[in-house]
Simulated scan of single mutants.
Amino acid sequence: MIRQGIAGLALALLVLGQTHATARAETFRLTSLDWPPYSGATLPDQGYSVKVAREAFAAMGHALEVEFYPWKRAVQTGLGEGYVGYFPEYHSDDLAAGACAFSDPAGSGPLGLVESTRAPLAWTTLDDLKGRHIGVVSGYVTTPGLAERARAGTLVLEAVTDDLTNIRKVAAGRIDAAEIDANVMTWLVDQNPELKGSVQMSPHLLDKKKLYVCFQKTETGSMARSIFNEGLKKITLPAVMAVQ
């Protein structure tokens, strides 16, 4: 009787342990955008940022599903029901005070200005861009120095829906430059051969921007954020995204 009781208890504990392990294995859902080479439905591993995020969750025994939308919809959807957030995002105080609980840095990218090869910019500081028309993408976090000067009226920011449109506007001479990640610019120009030779990155970078996941400020979002941050410590970032 005692042996049967012990055997029954052992079996119950085994089943309980298996059930608990299964309950802890979650599939988290994030949204993203087509922003090659960092994210995109058709990219290898769906892009560097998605690969990092998926590996971080996997290192902790969890899975990740990513859905891709235009940027504004990605943000809206990722902050809605059934998701835990969206990425990749630049840090901003406004977002941190609002909807975003930012992850630890999950990579970085070189942010600069794409310019025309026919009319390259001569600038060292942002004040040298006085009077220039600079393209930005609607909904992206704009470099504070550019935003401040636009509010002061010393330069003009023109917003479009995506980076490729900005590159084409620069190539056509419709704007003087556009804010863009250098890796994104290189990828888009490589994929659109008609742009080769007409645009280039300005040699001065605006910043080396860290990339984050914006997690929802919910109980599930907080849990996903903690798991993700722990997983980041267990993986190696791709060289192109190394945080400096």
Rank of each mutant, 00 (worst) to 15 (best):
Y140M: 00
E55F: 03
K233G: 10
M60K: 15
D207I: 12
M241L: 02
R24S: 14
Q216I: 05
L16Q: 12
M201L: 13
L16M: 14
P36S: 01
Q4K: 11
D34K: 02
T236W: 00
A53E: 12
F87A: 11
P70N: 08
A7E: 06
V136S: 03
G17D: 05
L30V: 08
G231I: 02
Q76F: 15
I6Y: 00
D190S: 09
A150N: 13
C100F: 11
Q191V: 02
H91L: 01
L121Q: 08
L146H: 04
M201T: 06
K130W: 01
I235T: 07
A106N: 09
N183S: 11
K234Q: 15
D34C: 00
Q76I: 04
G173F: 08
F228L: 10
A10T: 08
A101N: 12
Y140S: 00
L155D: 11
G40P: 06
F28K: 10
T125R: 04
E148F: 01
R29W: 11
A12G: 09
G5F: 05
P193T: 14
C100K: 02
G153I: 03
L9K: 04
T117Y: 07
P88M: 05
A177I: 13
Q18R: 07
P37G: 03
Q76N: 10
L237P: 05
A182C: 10
V114W: 09
L95C: 06
L14D: 04
R73G: 12
N166V: 06
G78S: 03
V50Q: 07
